[in-house]
Amino acid sequence: MSYCVHCGVELDRSEKRCPLCQTEVIDPREPFDEQAVRPYPRRLDPITRQINRRFVGSLITIVLAFPALLCGAIDFSQAGRLTWSAYVVGALVLVWSWTVPYFLLRRRTLSGVFIPGVLALLSYLFLIAWLQQDLSWYLPLALPLILMPSALIFLIVYLVIRRLIRGFAIPAAILIAAGLLIVAIELVLKHHAGGPVSPTWSLYAMIPCLALATVCLAIARRQAILDEIKRRLHL
């Protein structure tokens, strides 16, 4: 039996080094035996780090439900029906619908997380319009101004997740989307105001966006420029 010269403890034959101080065992009479049976097997049990998403989802639900119930109860006790608290409750439901599906869904897909959030936002705006008894701005303004950016964001994120665009093509896509969105916003606003539906000021924003997007696309196609940028600007 070998002893650690530093620790004074007796070591198992299978120990090449003292497990306490890492001093190598040098015993000419009883050298380290690689074939000796180790006291513990070598097979590792696979352990995956677990994050209790359900717990986080439940926690957010509780945190949001508490002020919602409290406001609802106070409002109801004073007015006999829901008045101002409907805005608070609606806003909290909106926050819930953007956060909790991410934690509760077993299989998190882009559409599973994004679409309920957009629908919740549209519903909340509808709630505001309905509570104010003025639906005139909802259909011509709120609906297109929410749906258009949402559709573009969904499309870009989808393309990125699917790796259909990558590298400098991503800022190019974002710039193209932003340029088109600005023009679309102007057209929607002009249509609502009742004037001629043609782009004017938005062109000044769209042209630089498209120009920058072209630069990005050009860079994306030139590996040498990409390498140079990475070399100079790496963080």
């Binding site: 039996m1 650690c4 620790c7 004074g8 403890v9 007796e10 070591l11 198992d12 299978s14 120990e15 090449k16 080094r17 003292c18 497990p19 306490l20 101080c21 890492q22 180790r38 006291p39 513990y40 070598r42 097979r43 590792l44």
Partner: peptide, 27 residues
Amino acid sequence: RAFFRHLVRLGIPVRVESNRDWDGSGG
């Protein structure tokens, strides 16, 4: 290490085994 060395200093013989073989061959 400090614990077992102290036991040795108290005159208690200690035989040590471990599963720590990932330093060399790895699990």
